[in-house]
Design a binder for these strands. Structure first.
Lengths: 118, 118
DNA sequence: ATAACGTACAACCATATGGTTGCACGTTTC
DNA sequence: GAAACGTGCAACCATATGGTTGTACGTTAT
């Protein structure tokens, strides 16, 4: 099995930061939902300038959450669910730390020898 | 079953933004892992001022990822895995949009009648 | 009581972010 | 070829972020 967390700390920063904006989450939802969407079609849906939406898409692209595919003069935006899955894996990992905390406690309780190390 | 997404858009902004920083992710990992940690004990582990770490903890607290519990003159920091689970649910939801896109396609293919609605 | 510790908060600074407008350039249409 | 369209990028602005130091204040220890 290959490493499932090929993301550097900086990658994770970009990934979560990209998700920390409502407009960007909405764009991700639309393109994952199958909406055939060029940048300008997306831009028409939001109450801000084209350039603003174009920047949001750029942020999503740098975070690996979407890819752009040239098609004539437009760039079709496609969602990348694999990157979402990676973010989800990190959260699972953190939640796993919580769970393992109790299984360690269980182990200590089941093992009456006292640990000597600090 | 109660609603599983009681988080407003602004809540989600705070939640993902809180996760978009390596120091904060590390703090979450430590406290979820069971490290008994006051703010100053946490601060000692990082190469920055106490005030900086205190601010990071405040950001995590506002995002609902940790809670502080006064104990004498210290504030013990505890992780809140439920909030992580909520973030994870959002990602699952987004990935679900992707999957449902294909099940819709499957439905269309399995149903030879042409849809009339746009 | 006084000193030391742990925390919170304000003020400040540099940089990042999210928005704007304007312009350049490739592509399509006429 | 000229006009219109879609995109990207630069410059600019206001505000947010992540860091600093200093100060105030409650709690613990001497």
């Amino acid at each position: 099995m290959v490493a499932r967390f090929p993301l550097s700390d900086a990658d994770l920063d970009r990934l979560f930061r990209a998700l920390a904006d409502g407009t960007r989450r909405d764009i991700v939802a639309r393109v994952l939902g199958g909406e055939q969407a060029s940048v300008s079609v997306l831009a028409a849906r939001y109450d801000m300038s084209f350039a603003a939406v174009q920047k949001h898409v750029a942020v999503l692209e740098e975070a690996g959450l979407v890819t752009k595919h040239p098609q004539g003069r437009e760039r079709m935006v496609r969602g990348n669910p694999a990157q979402l899955a990676r973010a989800r894996e990190l959260l699972l990992h953190l939640e796993g730390l919580w769970k393992s905390r109790f299984s360690q406690l269980d182990a200590v309780l089941a093992e009456p020898r006292l640990p000597q190390d600090d």
